[in-house]
């Protein structure tokens, strides 16, 4: 294992469950599936960023389009040093910079903020185009959910990135297979995803979304492409790391009660020692 991210991923999982438990609401399932995807960006050398200078022009960009994964994103940023870890306990409370879904005005260290699904890839494309126009070589990463692909705007943006050969865009699809009500396959199946993205002019990769080495290699492959945008279809487990949440659609947007919280923290502690 080239980058041992197990500790930081465990911390992010613990923070995620704790902050949602304290807030009494949030989206644990969708946050826990995306932990490795974000940690591999922020805690390896693949993603250039400067927590002390969050707007440095030479930084790479990250757009969290599935804004409901905010608890895991906030924890990632806090551990990276963008803001104090104590802020995590203010999630979803009045006056907090950590809104239920991110906001740039309240948390200016972000590259961008999205709450309404389907909007992030267009923004990432605009950033990528802007960087190209300025002759800058930074990469724009964007994370969406698999169910989010049901939004038509995603495909408007997919066509735009293909048309303009935005090779500085790397889209990650968190393929946990579940959405709010049920499985994606039952509601509106977006498979075959690879054929869809390929036909829109994208370079398509499949990875295990919890394997940080595989993610790292995929990000590297995206950065190396010079002809087309890359989409990484990251197979994940919704609720990953908390046994009773795993692969359960009902944990898309529900907070654990006290007993459930304690069990989750017990499980997340055990695994980090193993």
């Amino acid at each position: 294992m080239r980058h041992d991210l197990r500790d930081v991923c465990m911390q992010i999982r613990r923070d995620t469950v704790r902050s949602i438990y304290r807030a009494g609401s949030g989206h644990p399932g969708s946050s826990l599936s995306a932990v490795e995807i974000m940690a591999t960006l922020y805690f390896t050398d693949i993603f250039t960023c400067f927590p002390d200078r969050p707007h440095a022009p030479e930084r790479d960009r990250f757009v969290l389009s599935k804004g409901h994964a905010a608890p895991a994103f906030y924890s990632t940023l806090a551990h990276k040093g963008y803001f104090p870890l104590e802020w995590l306990d203010t999630l979803r409370t009045v006056g907090s910079p950590l809104q239920g879904h991110p906001n740039l005005q309240k948390l200016p260290c972000l590259d961008c903020a999205v709450g309404s699904l389907g909007q992030g890839l267009s923004i990432a494309n605009g950033m990528a185009l802007g960087l190209k126009r300025k002759g800058q070589t930074q990469q724009v990463f964007c994370l969406i959910g698999d169910g989010e692909q049901q939004e038509g705007q995603v495909w408007e943006a997919a066509a735009f990135a293909g048309q303009h050969h935005l090779d500085n865009v790397c889209l990650i699809v968190d393929c946990n297979g579940l959405q709010l009500v049920d499985s994606m396959a039952i509601i509106k199946d977006m498979e075959p995803m690879d054929a869809k993205w390929d036909s829109f002019g994208w370079h398509v990769l499949h990875v295990d979304g919890h394997d940080t080495d595989a993610l790292y290699d995929a990000y590297g492959s995206a950065k190396a492409r010079t002809d087309k945008p890359t989409v990484i279809l990251a197979k994940t487990v919704k609720g990953k790391g908390v046994s009773y949440m795993e692969n359960q659609a009902e944990w898309h947007g529900a907070a654990p009660d006290e007993a459930q919280y304690e069990q989750a923290m017990k499980e997340l502690t055990t695994e980090v020692k193993a």
Binding site: R61, L121, S122, G130
Partner: peptide, 8 residues
């Protein structure tokens, strides 16, 4: 959305 990204 693209305009938003350009503005950023």
């Amino acid at each position: 959305g693209t305009a938003a990204g350009l503005s950023l």
